[in-house]
Simulated assay, not measured.
Amino acid sequence: MMVPSSAEADERGRGPQDTKPISADALAVRLGDIARKLQHQVDTDSILEGIVHAALELVPHAADASVSLITGHRTIDSRAASSDLPRRVDALQSETGQGPCLDASYEERVVSVPDLSTDERWPDFSRPAFNLGARSMLSFQLFVDGDHLGALNLFGKGVGVFDAESERIGALVAAHAAVAVAGSQQVNQLTQALDTRDLIGQAKGILMERYKITAQQAFLLLSRASSELNIKLRDVAEQLTISGEMAKKR
């Protein structure tokens, strides 16, 4: 599910932070509220969507946002994106193996990109990303846990729109979000839960196409196989997506 962009949020009655700066006291209170709410979330998607909502609400000039989960030092999975743009940018970073999200996760805690049309740090990424519609970016490291990394990415509508205040508040949101993620569950559990959901979704799609059945019926088939074989549902789904065949009793 996509998180509403800042423009959509404004249409629902929330005033843009660009025109009404938030006070230090109000910011501290709001960040505390957000951290507490995130820590009580048990659903992984809700945690990530909460992070993106907070960034769009609080960071001046942030028009779009997403959380990127990175594995294997290259593969980037865009989650809780507020529009299709972050997903396309993450796909480009995965393809080229370079970009601000990767640098923020592995090398620097904060990466600022005022103008993607002229930035020379990532020659295979910057101009193509600009052509996709990304004008300026801020990327903040969220967590590092072994081979699992995460970053919060913010996108501006124009070049040079992010200022020192944007970077300062973005870093505070990322820091509070990182504490919430660590407090709610281990990072590897977070990524495993997301991977499991995707595997089951793929397996259900295979069964739906093959047998012309509904999503609910496909899930029941997977669950029955898991119960009869006494193996985890995730393992049943994984075997089906890899081999194309359901696991069988030996």
Results as ranks from 00 to 15, higher is better:
Q17P: 07
Q17N: 08
T19G: 11
I22K: 07
R30G: 06
R30F: 10
A35Q: 14
R36N: 11
R36D: 13
L38V: 02
Q41P: 07
D43A: 13
T44P: 11
S46P: 11
I47M: 15
L48I: 02
E49F: 07
E49L: 05
I51S: 05
V52F: 11
H53Y: 14
H53W: 14
A55G: 10
P60M: 04
A62E: 03
A62V: 01
D64I: 06
A65L: 05
A65R: 12
S68L: 10
R74G: 12
T75G: 12
A81Y: 06
D84W: 07
V89L: 07
D90F: 05
Q98N: 08
Q98D: 00
C101T: 14
D103C: 05
S105C: 12
Y106P: 05
S112C: 11
S112H: 15
L116T: 00
T118V: 15
E120Y: 09
P128S: 01
P128N: 03
P128A: 14
A129M: 08
A129W: 00
A129N: 07
G133Y: 08
S139K: 10
F140A: 05
Q141C: 07
F143K: 01
G146H: 06
D147N: 07
G150T: 12
A151Y: 10
L152F: 01
L152N: 04
L152T: 00
L154F: 03
F155V: 03
G156E: 05
G160K: 15
V161Y: 03
V161E: 09
F162G: 00
D163L: 03
A164F: 09
E165N: 14
E167K: 15
G170N: 00
A171M: 12
A175S: 13
H176N: 15
H176G: 13
H176E: 09
V181Q: 06
A182D: 06
A182S: 10
Q185S: 11
N188R: 14
Q189T: 11
Q192S: 15
L194Y: 12
R197P: 04
R197C: 04
D198M: 10
L199Q: 12
I200Q: 01
I200T: 00
A203K: 04
L207S: 02
Y211T: 00
Y211F: 07
K212M: 13
K212D: 14
I213K: 06
T214D: 02
A218K: 03
F219P: 09
L220F: 07
L221Y: 09
S227L: 09
E228A: 02
L229M: 10
L229C: 01
L229N: 03
I231V: 13
E238V: 06
L240R: 03
L240A: 02
T241V: 12
G244S: 01
A247L: 15
